[in-house]
Write a protein that binds this DNA or RNA. Structure first.
Length: 269
DNA sequence: CGTGTGCCCTGACAGC
DNA sequence: TGCTGTCAGGGCACAC
């Protein structure tokens, strides 16, 4: 499931294919994913030239010379297929350049596609309240101390809150909390400053390692070039219920409002 | 405002 | 073989 590292990997995979290329044709095989596509999406994209690619939180950004940015979210199962031999059932949007054909494939349709004025991107509703990038300079122990102050919610819930920090999902939050030695259900406001320093380091470490590994895989995630990521092998707690954590404890799983948390009660306090 | 719950969607998988 | 049930979860709506 694409979290920040997978989206980053996807954007890096799209860059050599799309940068400076003119979009010759856009085919919409349906009118929506999670929500309807913007009006006239095809016409507004056709003929535009890609001027740059980027990422904000778990969103991929494709800038065009028309002053618009195509914003994509991969949801649970979304991926871009580059030059697929043939199109499949879940290739909902197809973008063609002179040299390539790209298909946005999303079996579970939790993804989204929007076209937003580049100049107003930060004010776009989905972006306006986002917290800092976890790999950027604003994400610090000071920032977390401020965000956690007087909060009784579990630290895991706040790390998943995109207004606190933008781009973390269930897998990397579990991993980061394990690395930092902090129990997922600990009240956020009770965590000491030195431990927040460790948490910030842990978040950066797990994300950096995942990006370096080319994004992780969860059954249906594939890199844009079609190769599967392999960071899954490096997960310390996620999906490892009942296994030794590596530091003497045993990984436990608990479910809160239908969501799994993996952690080691011996190592995380 | 802070906190918690449930829904969307489909495919993989387990069990019978 | 084919059926049923369970699970995956990001973002958002909604209840209290």
């Amino acid at each position: 499931m694409p979290e920040l590292p997978e989206v980053e990997t996807t954007v890096r995979g799209l860059e050599p294919v799309l940068q400076d290329q003119r979009i010759e044709r856009v085919t919409l095989n349906r009118s929506d994913l999670r929500r309807p596509f913007p009006q006239d999406l095809g016409q507004r994209l056709t003929g535009a030239t890609v001027t740059g690619l980027g990422r904000r939180a778990k969103y991929g950004l494709i800038d065009t010379d028309r002053g618009d940015t195509l914003v994509f979210h991969l949801g649970m199962s979304g991926r871009w297929r580059i030059d697929p031999a043939e199109l499949g059932k879940h290739d909902h949007v197809v973008i063609e350049t002179a040299g390539h054909r790209l298909a946005l494939n999303d079996a579970r349709r939790f993804g989204s596609l929007d076209l937003v004025p580049t100049a107003g991107l930060e004010q776009w509703p989905a972006f306006a309240a986002l917290g800092p990038e976890p790999l950027g300079p604003e994400f610090s122990a000071e920032h977390l101390a401020k965000a956690f102050k007087d909060r009784i919610a579990p630290v895991k819930a706040l790390l998943l809150d995109q207004r606190v920090v933008a781009g973390l999902g269930n897998i990397y939050v579990c991993e980061a909390l394990y690395l930092a030695g902090i129990a997922p259900h600990r009240e956020a406001g009770t965590i000491s400053k030195p431990r927040l320093v460790k948490l910030v380091e842990a978040v950066r470490d797990v994300l950096t390692a995942a990006i370096a590994a080319g994004g992780s895989t969860l059954k249906d995630y594939a890199r844009p070039d079609g190769e599967l990521g392999y960071f899954a092998k490096q997960w310390r707690v996620y999906g490892r219920e009942g296994e030794p954590c590596g530091s003497g404890g045993v990984v436990e799983r608990r479910v809160d409002s239908g969501r799994s948390t993996f952690w080691c009660p011996q190592c995380q306090k």
